[in-house]
Design a protein around this nucleic acid. Sequence first.
DNA 1: GCTTGACTCTCCCCCCGCGGGAGGGTCGAG
DNA 2: CTCGACCCTCCCGCGGGGGGAGAGTCAAGC
Lengths: 273, 273
Amino acid sequence: MPAALGIGEFAKATHFSIKTLRHYHDVGLLVPAQVDPATGYRRYTTAQLPTAQVIRRLRDLDMPLDDIAAVLGADEPGARAQLIAAHLARLEGALAKTQAAVAALRDLLAGPPAALAIEHRSEPAIEAAAVVATVELAELAVWFQGAIGELDATLAAQRIAPAGAIGAVVDDALFSAERGELAVFVPVGAPVRPVGRVVARALPAVELAVIVHRGSHADIDRSYGALARFVAERAIGVDGPVRERYLVSRRDTSDESCWRTEIGWPIFRTAPR
Amino acid sequence: MPAALGIGEFAKATHFSIKTLRHYHDVGLLVPAQVDPATGYRRYTTAQLPTAQVIRRLRDLDMPLDDIAAVLGADEPGARAQLIAAHLARLEGALAKTQAAVAALRDLLAGPPAALAIEHRSEPAIEAAAVVATVELAELAVWFQGAIGELDATLAAQRIAPAGAIGAVVDDALFSAERGELAVFVPVGAPVRPVGRVVARALPAVELAVIVHRGSHADIDRSYGALARFVAERAIGVDGPVRERYLVSRRDTSDESCWRTEIGWPIFRTAPR
DNA sequence: GCTTGACTCTCCCCCCGCGGGAGGGTCGAG
DNA sequence: CTCGACCCTCCCGCGGGGGGAGAGTCAAGC
């Protein structure tokens, strides 16, 4: 027979704080079995202890309260498992990010990078096949893979050979506001017929300040910084979205230290130099 | 020559948002090289780009802004490395906790635990050597190790043999308020002479509801819950801090599944049975 | 019955690390 | 001079609670 417990006793049994239990009541995550309408006193039952324990486990995994509520509310155990699996996947992602950050930090502490070669060049207009969309920063990697796959397949189907390395035009809002317009493109010699999300797109001729970034993209802000410094110190105006070209990328090798990414920053006045 | 950048340009170069840069200015983490006193316009220099990059790395590791400021403000590189190492240690701790939580969750989802044997017994008064202190939950593990080491050494020095398994008296505030009084004790036959933090302490006789928890302490709230249920469903009053006894623990084996921990909850009225 | 001390209630403000938006000033090119 | 792009400050919000004020409740002991 489940027996009733005051909030203090329930707190002791579950190792939650009273404040936390009240909060869980407020948000509807763990509602007391009964609430005295006159005094407002909360009464829990021993049958609620297992629920509290599940909540504790999921909180230990930093699962948001809303998601926990969804797990507890799921009727079928399959749906439950799915929600939990999704959260574990997110955790793995965070872990990978952390590991990358540790590596990058170690790198940064090891010493300043070798001076990076920056050049200035006039890029002619490019005919390309492209996939354009407004994407969230969080979904960038997945979207990118999908877009590239679609481009590849379309070019192959139309028997068009790429006329250069894959690239992207990146709206800066993608970083400052977590979402922005992104165009992934492949230069082509012959015009592509639009299929699915793939469209033909002409990239205008621009003046570019260009740096080639070597290695993993976890480090790429160093090259961005070097480029910004170069441009700013020569008092050149910057204009328009950045172009990236993936000279050597995941498509070519899984050894990230071999990757080569060209970053091109459109500038609108040539340096006196 | 460092050149000046508006906040928007600096944001582009570092991939921080303008909001974030303003926030860093407010809290003093990354102060613009100059601020126009008339307009309030912030101006950064290219010399600040590397600093921004370090901040980015450390934020990727979820280091609090205050700690980052401390790292940047540290004069000697040694102090810097130490701060960072400390943070990495915290990250490792969090990782271990997450892994434990995953394991515990899997366990919990696998099915309900075998019915746990709970008994009720009269515990006689115990003469013990103890270390008592108010500790933070976060430092519990470290403090515990230290206290046990000190107890061991003291008993060995005084040639006193332990008269039972190591135990602890745990104030519940430790869990509900993140800090509380904790006493680690070893029962002894002969009185111990106080040395360092070690004192002689008599534990009063009590009536205990007792459960033996099997396995890792990550799971221990399940046993707490079972015990609370047992006690509550028989309408027995609960009184005073919990006693734990580490029958088989880290001291005996590193295989956590073999650990045995006795949890004793003082009760003040016997069950009708 | 009354007192006392332990519980419990609600309500409001605080923490971090920003994001969103209102409402208004500034800058430079045409 | 005007336009659009920048930039400013100020206030509110999130999630997951902690801290504390001020007031009401409960049960044991006298």
